[in-house]
């Protein structure tokens, strides 16, 4: 018996089974890329309302990144912003009748979590070098190395499970209510699902940013930094 969590394969490309989630992802990608291209074709020094709205989005994202990490926003803007926009679009795609959001499938959320895992390593190495990235596991002191390694895996796993659980549960609840109470009753739940999708996208992006910045900062900071672990004597004084 197949699990309800499994996605039906629409067609096969070599060894890869193309599910509806993948197709929806491609559709979202196409819409986002074409829409972004259409919106950013005529950017001018004197902004129109459309351009002002786009700049407001980018400026808000930059502000969030700066407030979260304290670092410059430019290196992380593309990755964090795309994560947020894609997850939001994927979550809200459930509003389209007959479309199941890609984030309600394990593979999509696991893929996103894997990207965050890799990006933490990538940004860590790029900021402090390979030694700096390794050193980030010894923060605040080398005793924490096993725990930090375990944490780097579990926190990504928790991200993917959190996103998957929230979106999938929403889809399930709405599906159950639709099957029981007809057409109009699920609408408040769908509205709630919109809010849940927005919050989950925001949480996923912010957590990714926090993990990346934590690794970057730990790699750049010397071991046993007194600012990280102040001695009780110093604290008491």
């Amino acid at each position: 018996m197949n699990s309800v969590l499994d996605s039906a394969v629409l067609f096969q490309i070599g060894p890869v089974g193309i599910t509806q989630a993948i197709v929806t992802t491609w559709a979202i990608m196409a819409i986002l890329v074409i829409g972004a291209y259409a919106l950013t074709r005529r950017l001018d020094l004197r902004p129109t309302r459309r351009q002002a709205a786009l700049e407001l989005i980018v400026a808000t994202l930059d502000t969030q990144i700066v407030e979260t990490t304290g670092a410059a926003a430019a290196p992380y803007r593309g990755f964090i912003g795309t994560l947020f926009v894609f997850i939001l679009a994927a979550n809200w795609s459930s509003l389209v009748p007959g479309v199941e959001p890609p984030t309600a499938q394990l593979e999509t959320d696991a893929g996103l979590a894997a990207l965050v895992f890799v990006s933490v390593i990538w940004f860590g190495i790029r900021a402090g070098g390979f030694r700096g990235w390794l050193k980030s596991f010894a923060a605040p002191n080398p005793v924490m190395i096993p725990l930090n390694i375990l944490q780097s895996l579990t926190r990504v796993f928790s991200m993917f499970v959190r996103l998957f659980g929230n979106v999938m549960s929403g889809v399930f609840v709405i599906g159950i209510v639709v099957s029981l109470a007809g057409l109009l009753v699920p609408i408040p739940l769908m509205a709630l699902d919109l809010l849940t999708g927005l919050v989950q996208a925001y949480i996923f992006a912010v957590l990714a940013m926090v993990f990346i910045s934590s690794t970057v900062e730990d790699g750049a900071r010397p071991l046993c930094d007194p600012d990280i672990a102040p001695s009780p004597t110093k604290k008491d004084s």
Binding site: S7, G17, A110
Partner: peptide
């Protein structure tokens, strides 16, 4: 419930 590694990889590449 099984995890489709090909699907996971493809979604990661897609993103």
């Amino acid at each position: 419930m099984t995890l489709d590694w090909w699907g996971l990889s493809l979604q990661a590449v897609n993103v």
